[in-house]
């Protein structure tokens, strides 16, 4: 974001940078110069490195960049494989949003009768946040088929991958929801209950709508992580973008495919990241407007 004037972040800048126009211009000059110098230094180090010619050929060869995007009769297209990442992300996201909300709500149910349910929710979040995703992938992807249960043991690798992602990410997202629920002041719940609404109605109409609105930015942040972690599903044998890049690299002895895969992940992450920024900015504006009223 460019300098705007009144945001609290501006206060962090040294004060000479504001007030005077001359000093302002000098600040722009200094920052431009230091940026150019910084990147020039890095470029110089890379260019002068003994293996720089080889790296340019192995990672940035235009021919291989293009060919790994398209694919060959022998190797999968990285772009085509990337659609599998998008698919896994899109399906997982929906289930995560629902399962995580259920976990967060269950964890908040008061009363001794519901202790077992709360316990399940607590153990769930502890376990699935604590165990590395890749281990969960192995356990689900190789364990469940091994059990030989009708239907459940005969799903596709991609499905097991989605299940593992949903299990792990739901634990994180449930905590995000829970933080949101707890940030809604108890007086809101008291007001709803005083009007004769049931506990569930209060949660549904009063608490959750406010809670979810507040946690949308951290929620999107988790989803950016999820987009990248779809690559780990490849350990079960699915050929998604990272895997396709690896196959290409192994048979062509050229790693431009990795650069392609990396760029694809960045490209799909940027819109979500900017969208998150916009939501945060909008929320901030709204709060300030509310404060003035």
């Amino acid at each position: 974001m460019t300098t705007r004037g009144t945001g609290p972040a501006d206060n962090l800048e040294p004060s000479p940078g504001r007030g005077s126009k001359v000093l302002g211009n000098r600040a722009v000059l200094v920052s431009s110069a230091s940026t150019v110098l910084f990147f020039a230094a890095i470029a110089l180090v890379v260019a002068l490195a003994p293996g720089s010619g080889l790296v340019a050929e192995r990672f940035f060869s235009p021919f291989h960049l293009w060919q790994s995007i398209r694919g060959t009769p022998g190797e999968p297209s990285v772009l085509g494989a990337f659609l599998l990442n998008v698919y896994i992300f899109a399906i997982s996201e929906v289930f995560i949003l629902v399962l995580a909300l259920v976990i967060a709500v269950v964890r908040g149910i008061p009363g001794p009768v519901f202790f077992p349910l709360r316990l399940v929710a607590i153990v769930y979040t502890d376990v699935f946040r604590g165990v590395p995703l890749i281990l969960i992938l192995y356990i689900i992807g190789f364990g469940v088929p091994g059990l030989g249960i009708a239907y459940f043991s005969y799903l596709s690798d991609v499905t097991y991958g989605i299940i593992a992602l949903v299990l792990v990410y739901s634990a994180y997202v449930a905590e995000v929801y829970r933080a949101g629920i707890e940030s809604v002041h108890e007086s809101q719940n008291a007001a709803a209950r005083s009007l004769g609404l049931t506990r569930f109605q209060s949660l549904r109409f009063v608490v959750l709508p406010q809670a979810i609105r507040r946690v949308i930015p951290p929620l999107l942040n988790d989803f950016i992580g999820l987009q990248k972690d779809t690559a780990l599903v490849s350990v079960l044998g699915s050929i998604e973008a990272a895997r396709a890049a690896q196959i290409y690299g192994a048979s062509q002895f050229n790693y431009a495919s990795y650069v392609v895969a990396a760029l694809l992940f960045v490209l799909i992450t940027i819109p979500l990241a900017r969208f998150t920024d916009r939501l945060i900015a909008r929320d901030k504006r709204r709060r300030q407007a509310g404060g003035l009223a």
Partner: peptide, 10 residues
Amino acid sequence: VYQSFNLFPH
């Protein structure tokens, strides 16, 4: 009715 109104802001 409470001291702090407690209207639903959303």
